[in-house]
Structures are given as C-alpha cells and as structure tokens.
Nucleic acid binder design. Structure first.
Lengths: 337, 337
DNA sequence: CTGTTAGCGCCTTCAT
DNA sequence: ATGAAGGCGCTAACAG
C-alpha cells in the first residue's frame, strides 16, 4: 500500500502550481481550459484522491453530520437512518453513523468521537444520553433529537417525538370501539419514558370509556419478543375472559402472537392483538398486525434538513409527526356485541 | 459555535509546550505527574477536543475502516454491521458506514468518499460493484467482501460467502426427506448470483433424489415480500398437488405465508414452507419459519478482525461460514407417507 | 523528561 | 489567470 498521491504531485505532473489544481478541484476560480484538461489528465493518470483531512483542516469544515443510533441493527431506528441519508443526499454533507448500544458510557464515547471528527451537526436517535449532555451538546452545534422529548430550543436545537400517549389512547379506543371490554396490556420497561406514556394512554382510554383500570391486566415486558410471549401467557392464565391485548410495541406483539399460536388460539377470532411502531414485518405478519405507525423515515429526512438549514443559518418549517393507525387484520369485532 | 479549542491553547493554559500535551494525550512518553495533572485540568477547563483531522494528517493514519452496505436498513446486512462493530471494538479503529442503495454509481461514489476519508481498510457487503473495481481497490488497501464470491487473494483480500447451492440443496432435501414430492420454488431475480445458486441447489437436490425438475414449479420473485405473495398464488393456481414451497429468501416466504393465510390454508398442515437467510423475524413468525441461517454477525466480526490483522501485518485463521438449518414449525411430514 | 522545529496535504490571501 | 507563501492542529524527530 503505497502512500497516496498528493495534490502537489498532480500539480507537478501537470506542470502547474498546487493552487491551480486546488482551484480546479473546487471550482474556486476560472482556470484556462487547457490547463484544466492537463490537470484532469494528471489526476486520472496518478489516481489522485483528495485528502479529506487536509481539506477539512484547511477549511475548518468537515462536511459531515454525526448520527448516533442506539443500535445499527434496529429495524425501528434504521428507517430514520434511511431518511437522514436521503435528507442529506446532494447537500455535500454526509452522515457519520455510530451506535451506542443503549449504553450511556458508549453513547458518550460515541459523541466524543463524533466531536473529534468535527461533525458540524448531530442527530441523536433515542438513546440514554442524559438531558444534561444533550443541552451541552446543543450549545456547541446544531442538534436534533429523534424519539425523545427534550426542549433544546434555547440553543436552537429540536426534538421530534411522536405522541405516545395519544397513540396508545387511540389504539385502545379502537379496541374498545370494536366491542372489547377486557383488554390486556403488555407494557415496556417502566424506566422507559415511551413505555410509561403508552401505558398512560391505555389507562386513560379505558377510564374515559368508563372501564375500570385493572392493574392485573397489565404485564411488564422489555420490548423484546420473548417478553411478549411470556406476557401473553401470564395474561391468559389470569384472565380467561380476555379478548384483546395491546402490546406496547410490535416486537412484543410478535411474541404474544406466538404464544397464542402455541395454544391454538386464533388471531383475531379468539384474541385481538395490536402492536405499536408498525415495523416493516407487521405488514406481512400472520395475520397482518394492526399497529400505529411512526413516520420514522420522514422524521429522519426532516431532521437532516433541519440540520442543513441551521448550518446555512436558515430556518425550516416545523414538522408535525402524524402518527397513523394501521388497521389490519389482527383485530376482530367482539362476538355477541 | 465558537472555534474549537486547540492543543496549543491547552498547552498555554497549562504552561507547558504543545508536545507535552500531545505526549500526555497519546501516552507516547512519560511525563511528570504534576504536569500531567495540570494539563488534564486545562483540558477539562477549556473543554478541549482533539482534532482527528489534524492528527490523521500528521500521523498518516486515519484509524478508520470503511464499510459499504447496500442498504442501511437491510435486516440482512445489518447483522453483519453489528458484527463488524463488535470486531472493531477496542481496536482503536472505528467503522465508517456508507450505503450504496444497490446502485452501482452510488456505490462507486461511496467508495471514493471512503478513500477520501483515508480509510485504512474496507469491507464491502454484497452490492453491485463490478469485480474489476474490487480488484483495483484490493490493490490499494486491505479489502474484505461479504456475501459475494470473488477471488481477491492476489492482493491479500478475501471474500466470505455462504455456500448458497449447498444450503439450498440441504433445504430441499429436508423437504424431500419429510415426504414432499411436489415442491415449488420461489426464486430470486435471475441476474442475482445468490438467487441462481439457490435455484441450482434446489434443482440438484430434486434430481439427485430422482424427482424430475419441473420449470413450472419455479416462479421468479424479486426477494421482496409482495413477490412472494404473488409467487405463491401462481404456484397454487397451477399445481393443486403442491405440498411444499422453498422460497429463495425469508422475505418472500413471509409474502407466501400471507397468501396462504388469505386462502385459509394452514402452515404447515396444508403447506410446508421454508425460507432462506433466517431473518430475526423468522423465529417469531406464525408458525416459526424453517430457514437456513447465515452467520452474518460472525462473518462481520471475522471480517473486521481480518482487516485489523492485515493492518498489523499479521494473518488470521480462515473462517469457514457454517450455515445452519433452522428446522422450525413451518414444515410437516407429508400425510400418508 | 521536555521544548523546538518541521512538516502532514490542502486552501486561501496576496501579489503579479 | 496563476504562483508563492502562510497556516489549519497535531505529531515526530531532534536536541537538550
């Protein structure tokens, strides 16, 4: 692996000065055509690749925005990543993606790495970073947070989050409207804000409709499939009159679905089921799972544009994430209604 | 956003020379304790963040390895990404991930970007890059290719791919062994090497067992769910005696599963179904889908280690990807056997 | 152990 | 329109 070709070498090869090559590369100034041609040929011949580091050092601009995701393999956040990529495309900026693996220490380390790389803006997806860190970050550069409520407006940052409570309420109301009266809930971890809000929404919907909130109808999971499976089993043991279950996310709903399958219970005939998040897999679940869709890709795209705007000193129209109830085939009207 | 603090400023604040600060930062040499303390305090006070660009420029090492993935949101390749992250962890190297969106031009552009960023090695996941490009790349830096067969050994590169043909044969044999005689195949796009190999494996298994290969039992899909759904419908129309279907990937199997559900056909009672890839979702499908698992994460991890080894001028034990037949509940023994 | 001196590769005035 | 010169922030000899 030989040392990379430098701009100076290209200049020498083309018989011009380094500045000229630089100008041609960046279109900074008009250069006589024949020189430009010579230079291009030299570049081609030598296989020259500009060195980002040197350039960034000289210009003081890195042309990159940092993206912190909790998990590079999370189907949920990856839609947002796609959106961010899209939003950045053609802007001259490129994303630098790092995952924090849901560990605060790793996330802090990742942020540091991003800072070292002199990202000009940062997009944080969910994660565990203390609000304090986020505020501090936001004071240094444009920051956008996705999937989390935090007021960053003091330094011009934003956060985008769906209304978990409202969506959970809608979902629960949907079940109630279909005639269900004994509705279980498989919740997420209680130390998780989203999980708590979804539980609250569930409870509120029940109470608004005059149904008593029964804590034994709530079992706690951890947002992973196995906990959904176990949760469903537990609900079934305790409530033989159960007709519907609202799972706090799709993954747990898949687990719950499997529990039912194992017991020979049919969905939706014997049990209605709804999830939350509308993962890609839910459209092709058996049966297709009703859920509430978060427009992650759109949110990601908007976030990218937000950062770009701030970088240019412009502003951008605020984004109203519109959650969408995806009513599919996993819910039946209750018999005998 | 004020200009970032520099090492020189830290040095001034701490009353030492820049080199001393540098040495402390990198542990390059022993420094008297009290100075070290002063420097750390100065760093803390000023909120200093080392500039990766300047460092890389000076050392000539970027400390990063490029990763090209066809799609940042692909559940299949993302496992490999996780593996790569893991394999790199603690090595001082970090991955720079870019997606090529299955478009050759974009992929080439991405490679260029990576080269500009002076990645020291590169891992390519699948994709469309012509072999030619890969060879050229491999001559410049350590390259590993995942999910694709190409001989890069001349310049010390590697490619890791599972044996698609063998796995497809195993899968088909598995169905035959369970008594199935009329087995359909939903194939992938014919311009896709993996898809062709899987089809070949299917065909070979059939012929080895003395079953005639019937082209009308093969319908072509595009590796996406909808094409699986349509494929299954077509197979069903033409072959009323069909008892099993081998889908060239899990995603199409999900689609096929849905087609069956819609027709009221049960899996596995009325139809056995196997997929390929063993996506995370397959464990919790209804019923859990039999498939063949590619150890993507392990492959990714090994790839990372391979690159690291080459960077250090060491060698590493070759990796034998062991595909694993995941026999779950989507296959039944044929009645009346 | 620590300071001084050169660059690393590129961009950007400032002259010409 | 183009070249020369200085500097971006950091590291790595080289002297002490």
């Amino acid at each position: 692996m030989t040392r990379a070709v430098t701009l100076t070498e290209v200049a020498r090869e083309a018989g011009v000065s380094p500045s000229t090559v630089s100008r041609i590369l960046n279109g900074t100034a008009r250069v006589r055509d024949n020189k430009a041609t010579q230079v291009r040929q030299a570049i081609e011949k030598l296989g020259y690749t500009p060195n980002t580091f040197a350039r960034s050092l000289a210009t003081g601009a890195s042309g990159s925005v940092g993206v912190l995701t909790p998990d590079i393999a999370s189907p949920f956040y990856n839609d947002a990543l796609s959106g961010i990529e899209q939003g950045l495309m053609g802007s001259g900026y490129s994303p630098i993606i790092i995952s924090g693996h849901w560990r605060t220490a790793e996330e802090e380390h990742a942020v540091e790495l991003l800072l070292n790389r002199r990202v000009e803006g940062m997009i944080i997806l969910g994660g565990q970073l203390p609000d304090h860190d986020l505020h501090a970050l936001s004071a240094r550069l444009p920051v956008g947070v996705l999937g989390r409520n935090i007021d960053l407006s003091r330094h011009g940052g934003v956060s985008l989050n769906m209304d978990n409570r409202q969506s959970a309420r809608d979902l629960t109301n949907y079940l109630i409207g279909r005639g269900h009266r004994v509705i279980g809930h498989i919740s997420g971890p209680s130390d998780h804000a989203d999980a708590r809000e979804r539980l609250t929404g569930y409870r509120e919907a029940l109470e608004e409709r005059g149904l008593k909130y029964d804590p034994t109808l709530v079992v706690q999971g951890d947002f992973q499939e196995p906990s959904g499976l176990i949760g469903m089993q537990r609900l079934l043991q305790q409530h033989s009159d159960l007709t519907a279950v609202f799972s706090a996310n799709d993954q747990m709903a898949y687990g719950a679905r499997l529990a039912l399958y194992r017991l020979g219970l049919r969905v939706p005939d014997d049990m209605s089921l709804v999830g939350f998040d509308d993962l890609p897999g839910s459209t092709y679940a058996t049966p297709p799972l009703s859920s509430v869709r978060q427009p992650m890709a759109e949110m990601g795209r908007w976030m990218a544009q937000f950062i770009l705007a701030r970088l240019r000193g412009e502003t951008i129209e605020p984004f109203e994430p519109r959650q969408e109830l995806m009513m599919r085939e996993s819910v039946a009207s209750r018999r005998g209604l």
